[in-house]
């Protein structure tokens, strides 16, 4: 693939991009202005929250769990970056000797790669970092710890 043909491939992407931008601008600022009736109303300026009146500010502090999930996501994002060149050549390598040893080898390489990271996923899962609602066993542990701390405080008093 020469430089020129590569650029030509990306001309397709550029066309998609231009269409996407024009589509949004045309719909929001041109067509809707022409078609919609203009009824001024204070409530039209409020934030849309599934039809409910919005409560409080949107600047709430996020739960720490979001950050943990984002960190885990980032790791698997980098994993995808590694698998992308593999996926590009997999078909060629598999077809090279008619799906023989090379294909199996290349497939196993990626399988091992995924398996090692799967251990990490199991670790995070088992520790409950992915639990959105704390599991009942974790809540029991928390409750027991709280009781122990309270008991200590009573002894001190």
């Amino acid at each position: 693939m020469t430089m020129a043909s590569m650029y030509f491939d990306y001309a397709n992407v550029a066309v998609f991009f231009v269409f996407a931008v024009v589509f949004v601008i045309l719909n929001i600022s041109v067509i809707s202005v022409i078609l919609r009736p203009t009824v001024e109303n204070d409530q039209k300026d409020t934030t849309y929250e599934c039809g409910e009146p919005s409560v409080g500010s949107s600047w709430v502090r996020f739960d720490m769990r979001f950050y943990t999930v984002a960190l885990v996501f980032l790791i698997f994002d980098v994993e995808v970056a590694f698998l992308y060149p593999w996926a590009v050549v997999f078909k060629d390598l598999r077809g090279a000797i008619g799906g023989s040893a090379t294909g199996v080898f290349v497939f196993l390489e990626a399988a091992i790669f995924l398996l090692i990271l799967f251990v990490g996923l199991i670790y995070v899962w088992k520790r409950g970092d992915l639990d959105w609602v704390k599991s009942s066993s974790a809540q029991e542990v928390d409750a027991r710890q709280r009781q122990m701390i309270e008991a200590k405080d009573e002894v001190r008093l």
Partner: peptide
């Protein structure tokens, strides 16, 4: 290539530990 996977695993476990302690 495989070592990169191990490195990512270490990073994942470390990140989970750090985030947990902060939480």
């Amino acid at each position: 290539f495989e070592m990169a996977s191990v490195l990512l695993l270490v990073a994942l476990v470390g990140a989970a530990m750090a985030a947990r302690r902060g939480g």
